[in-house]
Design a protein around this nucleic acid. Structure first.
Lengths: 228, 228
DNA sequence: TACATTTGTGTCATAAATACGCAAACTAAT
DNA sequence: ATTAGTTTGCGTATTTATGACACAAATGTA
């Protein structure tokens, strides 16, 4: 009654980073072992018997790229029988966000190299990872509209214009600066600081804000809906 | 380099049904084998080596309850190491919708019984299935607000008031009948028929509509956003 | 000191959401 | 048949949210 299964389980992570100069980028590693040796792929690997899926993802991110993740949620499970040439491998994909300025990428023993790639200029990817990344980008675009996950990509303190540029980049459309600022202040999830931008390249220095997570959860429980 | 894994993979389905008289209900089966023998659980089972995850779900639904599903999407993968007393079993949960009036539940060899349970009056469930159902209910509530999945729960032709009652039930709040009707007509995804309700228990018989899927996809591509 | 640049605040027109009025079409009771 | 009760279909008024744009304030630079 219990069929002998020949299926292995792995996890993969689509980690997004953002730097104001560039666009949204995704973390890729260069494989050192077959299949797809020397090809770019998502960080990930087989799940160990005793660990949770989340533990597997954070472990792989740590050992393959030296990344400590800022935000992590499950994305989708990819299970097509032919997706891995080694045999049946089902992959639980995760979706993560980090601020790339917070640390230095460190390719370790498991990876030949680890680098950020602009999501519009991705190399050929191993396995079905192109599909996985596509799914993650879609998720990022829809999720950022009704949950304030964008903050995870920014510095702790930031001018509202940085947040606005992030939204313009992710949603790929222009947003009116003044209406955006009005809306953000209206939600009341930004905490203003008595600090200004240090050395703006030009113009009036902006007031710095940080995300007030506590206030956000309070408002969420009251039924206030965050939506851009 | 390739660790021996001792993990098995199964699928489980949270199938919702709706009958106007009652509330939203979920399909459960009574287990015939240990663990949790004679306890209520979600339909599901181990994935076969050659089949996709979707194939596994539809197969199990067919053999355990005789259900042909109307709408199916992946929900979440549950992977806590202790979630199954038999050992490490990771479960990919799916989320489904059917119109229960379209067929008769048929408990087969694999299940002692198969029944609909009101989501507000669930029995004790096997494994972590209570958590799975909770996740699915949350998904139903959020998803129905911005995608027209509710139609899968209704008859092919229905009065708008049926749709409205469904939304009131799922969202658990009163909705103004007249504004709802206005909004639905405004979207243009309902196709009117020259037919009226046969025997209303009282009042003026309502015009019957059906969901115009083709029109919906057309509007979606044009960027029109469906939102209740 | 003038100029370019970016921020902060405000106004105004328009679209969308909400609250509610009322006649039309039916059933059931008298 | 008439009347009362119920539900549909279509309407309007009011409030709220959105989108477009004007302009002063604060900075760096020529």
């Amino acid at each position: 009654m219990e069929p002998k299964q020949n299926i292995r389980l792995c996890v993969d992570a689509v980690v997004f980073g953002y730097t104001a100069k560039e666009s949204i980028s995704v973390l890729l590693i260069k494989r050192t072992i077959p299949p797809f040796m020397h090809r770019w792929a998502l960080p990930g690997g087989f799940v160990l018997d005793g660990e949770t899926l989340e533990e597997a993802v954070t472990r792989e991110l740590q050992t393959e790229a030296g990344v400590h993740i800022n935000y992590l949620e499950q994305l989708y499970t990819f299970g097509r029988p032919e997706r891995d040439p080694r045999g049946r491998v089902v992959s639980v994909a995760y979706f993560g966000l980090v601020n790339p300025t917070n640390f230095k990428l460190a390719a370790s023993s498991d990876a030949e190299d680890a680098r950020w790639f602009d999501i519009k200029k991705l190399p050929d990817l191993a396995f079905d990872h192109a599909e996985v990344v596509e799914t993650a980008v879609k998720r990022l675009r829809t999720k950022i509209r009704y949950e304030p996950i964008g903050f995870e990509l920014l510095d702790q303190k930031f001018p509202i214009s940085d947040l606005e540029k992030l939204y313009e980049t992710v949603l790929d459309r222009p947003i009116d600066r003044r209406n955006f600022q009005k809306k953000m202040n209206h939600f009341g999830i930004l905490m203003g600081h008595n600090e200004k931008q240090k050395h703006p390249s030009a113009g009036r220095p902006a007031k710095l804000y940080s995300f007030n997570e506590e206030q956000y959860f309070k408002l969420k429980q009251e039924g206030i809906i965050f939506e851009i």
